[in-house]
Write a protein that binds this DNA or RNA. Structure first.
Lengths: 207, 207
DNA sequence: GTCTATACTGAGATAGAC
DNA sequence: GTCTATCTCAGTATAGAC
């Protein structure tokens, strides 16, 4: 059948989103999809390549939107520095939208993060977009030394990745009684937090 | 031999630090340690329990120091709020020290993070310490609504975890030419970044 | 109590028939 | 393109020697 590939993709997306990548065996996927085990390796090469296809068909649209928003900001600024908050909003809004429209996407990215697969996924599918935003932030924060800016971007990526998936790291004792806030709210809070962190004064040198 | 257990622990620490947890098979560990496969399950129960022992013997001292520093800060403050930066420094200094004395510890924690094992490790070995620091930060940031403070702590943990391991997430194109900064420097920058983020004004409500 | 040898189950990958 | 059969390697469990 020609849609064996599609059936594998759809089933894998659902199962990996629900159970995680490592916990979802190819044998489980092919059983639910009603196809043969070897079909996975025939169509995708390996379990990891199957995952790449899953991410790709979700991430492409988000990154396009991000770049379009950044293009518009740079056009409006006409060479001047863009405020940090605006750059960050251009980066987070498309993800927020995608997350609201299709929770499965956020779920999948959260799983990737939780299993330590995000660095690989990021460098494969988000690298060009990241470079553009890094350059924009460099212009927005001209007083910050290069090396410290680089570190702060690392911190930013860490906070962002962690925020995407509802984590159980912070002990239950300190979780507010009104439950976990929704995704859009978390993203708004994240932008404010990151703006504060990125705009902090440069760290004084120690002797 | 009585030190079979020690040999397993030492070899596992080295191999897992170098290659990661998932990539290091028990068979590889026992081959290098020169012991039998079943000795692992005899002494530790499972691969995961072996990892727990590794973390435990490294983390206990760090957490004790952290709590001692926080105790002193609270004593000095005599009931008043402690500045955010001081609380963070009390949290990070012991890790910095441990990292400088014994790079293997940081390496191991970085691996845990990279493989998505950190949440489990944290809730097992760092939970009591975290609770104390969360309470202190709550008093240091009285104007911040509870829910947003909680989210910011999540962001903080994300940034911190990510910073501990030299990650390859940010594209090589933007890495400064002078290479990766040392661990102590990164921690100092992290404290400044987090202080800025935690002290940002509360996010305005949207209708 | 410790340790060895060996067997068991389930994973991903692959060669070759159709 | 698809499927069967098989391979290698993982973590785990058990039986029994010292």
């Amino acid at each position: 059948m020609i849609d064996t590939k599609q059936k594998i993709l759809d089933t894998a997306e659902r199962l990996i989103g629900d159970q995680g990548y490592a916990a979802t065996s190819l044998r489980h996927i092919i059983a639910e999809a009603g196809v043969n085990l070897a079909a996975v390796n025939y169509h995708f090469g390996s379990k990891e390549d199957l995952l790449d296809e899953l991410i790709l068909r979700k991430a492409a649209g988000v990154n396009q939107e991000r770049l379009a928003l950044l293009d518009r900001l740079e056009e409006e600024a006409a060479g001047a520095a863009i405020p940090v908050g605006k750059v960050l909003t251009a980066f987070f809004d498309p993800m927020m939208e995608a997350g609201s429209r299709n929770p499965q996407f956020v779920k999948l990215m959260g799983r990737m993060y939780a299993e330590g697969l995000l660095p690989g996924v990021v460098s494969k599918h988000f690298q060009p977009t990241l470079i553009r935003f890094v350059q924009a932030l460099r212009r927005s924060l001209p007083t910050l030394p290069e090396a410290e800016l680089f570190s702060r971007l690392q911190f930013m990526i860490g906070a962002m990745s962690h925020a995407v998936c509802a984590s159980r790291t912070v002990p239950a004792a300190v979780i507010p009684a009104d439950g976990v806030p929704d995704f859009r709210q978390t993203m708004r809070w994240l932008v404010v937090f990151l703006t504060g962190g990125l705009q902090a004064p440069p760290t004084p040198e120690v002797p």
